[in-house]
Design a protein around this nucleic acid. Structure first.
Lengths: 198, 198
DNA sequence: CGTCTATTTGAATGTACTCAAAAGCGGTGG
DNA sequence: CCACCGCTTTTGAGTACATTCAAATAGACG
């Protein structure tokens, strides 16, 4: 398991893209997080419960998915040094419809929303952090949106190869298919076509 | 044209879902916006320019779209009392890839980002407004995402009828098709099928 | 009223899906 | 170290659904 000091370093680096924290502030901030390991194929929190935390991924790889009529579609992949929470569940206090599953054994640093909200109220700097993180989350989700609307499955896969090679190398193919919105068989055929220098 | 006082009322009502402002604060805040009319089929700002403003829709209906290889897909519809900006363009200072077109003649209250950022720096309350607005934007975009991933065109259309009847009644069919990611002919056939009690 | 655009309908084509089965791969226990 | 088991990926054949192209009808707007 990653030592806590290393994990905290990663956390600090990630935060400092948004706001500046002194060493001391950083330490205090990091102490609000607890560490958690999620084994391969296990879940961070059960879908159907209210999401009350934000996770920073120290190491590993996870995916979020939504199930409907037995069919499961992957909405996003997350790797080390990224963040995840279900804003909708948090804001509406409704059970989350999104499942979060570890693709590799994953280490998380987790902070409860109530701690964050306390910070928001006490220190405007953190309110800003919250704003900037939300705004950056929008960019990611919107790009996903654009891709779903405009790209054919083949284009989407080629884009993934170019822009997110980690997904290709670390995620099983049937999960990539569920991310592209197609069946595993179809992805296999697309890959074959691409390999034949299509 | 809607009188400015009425427009400001709507603005106030919308803001007060997020933060409380006194009459005076509200007045000052509203003064940072200017009004603009966008005629039917005209654009708010040309795609390919950097987005530097946020718009509150006082009256009318707009759509955002992304063009690719001559094909245009509608990413979202916006009606009165909602907000729109291109966070990505603003944050990255890159030209926006998203076009914003008025479906009906539309009246906007517009605030430049630089004014908002000044507020963010001066008054934590506004920073919070910015955070909450971004977080709520996430919910909307994410729901769109879920729908694109999980719903068949027919299901998506039925959901639209149930949950966003304004779209059905006020948006031309070929634009709804471009929102669903299908061709107008296909939507026509889906509608026929639904009408026949499918 | 006439023109332009949106919607509907038809026929042929293409792409993804389903079902079924084979081949490949990884991990486990003997 | 090898043999086996389960899961993933590939391949094949037939089907369903959306697309394209073309043309007719319906509606909107000046």
């Amino acid at each position: 398991m990653t030592p806590r000091t290393t994990a905290d370093q990663q956390l600090k680096a990630s935060i400092s893209r948004f706001i500046n924290l002194s060493e001391e502030e950083c330490l205090q901030f990091a102490q609000l997080f607890y560490m958690r390991e999620v084994k391969k194929k296990a879940y961070w929190f059960p879908s159907g419960t209210v999401c009350t935390e934000i996770a920073f991924i120290v190491k590993g790889c996870m995916r979020t998915y939504i199930e409907k009529n037995e069919v499961e579609r992957t909405s996003q992949f997350f790797f080390e040094n990224s963040w995840y929470t279900d804003y909708e569940s948090w804001l509406t206090k409704q059970p989350s419809m999104v499942g979060v599953e570890a693709i590799e054994s994953t280490e998380l640093l987790i902070i409860p929303f109530r701690e964050l909200e306390r910070l928001y109220n006490e220190t405007p700097k953190y309110e800003r952090l919250g704003r900037l993180m939300a705004e950056n989350t929008i960019i990611g989700i919107r790009n996903r949106n654009v891709s779903l609307l405009n790209d054919s499955p083949e284009e989407a896969y080629l884009k993934l190869m170019k822009e997110r090679p980690k997904v290709i190398s670390r995620v099983p193919q049937h999960l990539i298919a569920s991310y592209l919105g197609i069946e595993p068989e179809t992805l296999s055929r697309i890959r074959k076509k691409i390999a034949q220098k299509g």
